[in-house]
Every structure is written in structure tokens, then in C-alpha cells.
């Protein structure tokens, strides 16, 4: 019992239990669930990122969903094209720098979609960490036309 009591004394460290947030509700947020991108054109990725202490790093992954495997985290579904075999699907995996020490950050990055990629259903995955190591993921279903 003494051991139990002794151990309880010094629980002082403040720990972070809050996930960072990817906010896509602003009117100019893009893409959102069911957005469409045009091949051969550049679009601007806009989102608001927030954390209670400090944002960590942001990663974006665009990959095909021709097989309907789905990583969508959104409550609404989008119309899907029939399942098909990919030939030259668009693949983009990259980070977008967040300046150090930020609790809120508005993302505005240009992403070019090449002209020769397969049109169809894609996933737009946003992964955001905070300094502690909590990660939030948004998986959006989008289309490339």
C-alpha cells in the first residue's frame, strides 16, 4: 500500500490529448468530398489546420480508387464510376511545409494534375500530425475528369 501511495504523488506533467484538426468547412476550402479536378490543370489545395499546442507535419496522398477499396472518412458517399483497371493513374505523395510553432495555419498550395492521367475515382488523403504525435486523417473521394 505504501508503494501505491508513494507512486501517486508526482503525477504532475501536463500531457496533450487533443488531436490536430483539418477543417474543410470554409467556403473556399478545396478539395472537399466529391470535388472534381481537371486533368492538365492546376488547382489550389486550401484547408485550415489547427492544434491546441503546435502543428506537426502535413502530408497529402492522391491515389486512384478504381477498385472501390475506399478510404473515405466522410459521412456522405459520392457517385462512383464502375470498377476498372488502372493504366496510368495519377499518384502524388508529398508534404507541405508548416512553419514551426503554429497553432493554426491556412494551407494554400498549388498542385498540378498532368494531362495524360486516367480519369475516374480518386482519393485525396490528408494526414496531419501535431508535435505530440497525434494524427488526424481525412480521406476524401474525388474525381479527375
Amino acid at each position: 500500500m505504501l508503494l501505491l501511495l508513494a507512486g501517486c504523488g508526482n503525477d504532475q506533467e501536463e500531457i496533450d490529448e487533443v488531436y490536430p484538426e483539418i477543417i474543410l468547412t470554409a467556403p473556399d476550402a478545396f478539395p472537399v468530398q466529391c470535388s472534381a479536378l481537371a486533368s492538365g490543370e492546376t488547382f489550389t489545395f486550401r484547408a485550415l489546420l489547427q492544434d491546441n499546442i503546435e502543428l506537426g507535419s502535413l502530408s497529402v496522398d492522391i491515389h486512384h480508387n478504381f477498385d472501390h477499396h475506399t478510404h473515405s472518412t466522410e459521412p456522405t458517399d459520392c457517385d462512383m464510376e464502375p470498377v476498372k483497371t488502372p493504366e496510368n493513374p495519377f499518384l502524388l505523395i508529398r508534404d507541405f511545409p508548416i512553419p514551426a510553432g503554429q497553432r493554426a495555419y491556412e494551407v494554400s498550395f498549388d498542385i498540378a494534375v498532368p494531362a495524360d492521367v486516367d480519369p475516374g475515382d480518386y482519393h485525396f488523403m490528408i494526414r496531419l500530425t501535431d508535435k505530440t504525435g497525434w494524427q488526424s486523417i481525412r480521406g476524401l473521394s474525388i474525381k479527375i475528369n
Partner: peptide
Amino acid sequence: LNPTAEHDYYYGAGNQ
């Protein structure tokens, strides 16, 4: 296994 704030683009294919 400690989750860090980083994403890796070389070996990690964009994952935490």
C-alpha cells in the same frame, strides 16, 4: 513504438 510528428516521403510513402 513512439509516434512522432514527422511524415516520411522517402521510405515512408508519406506516412507518419
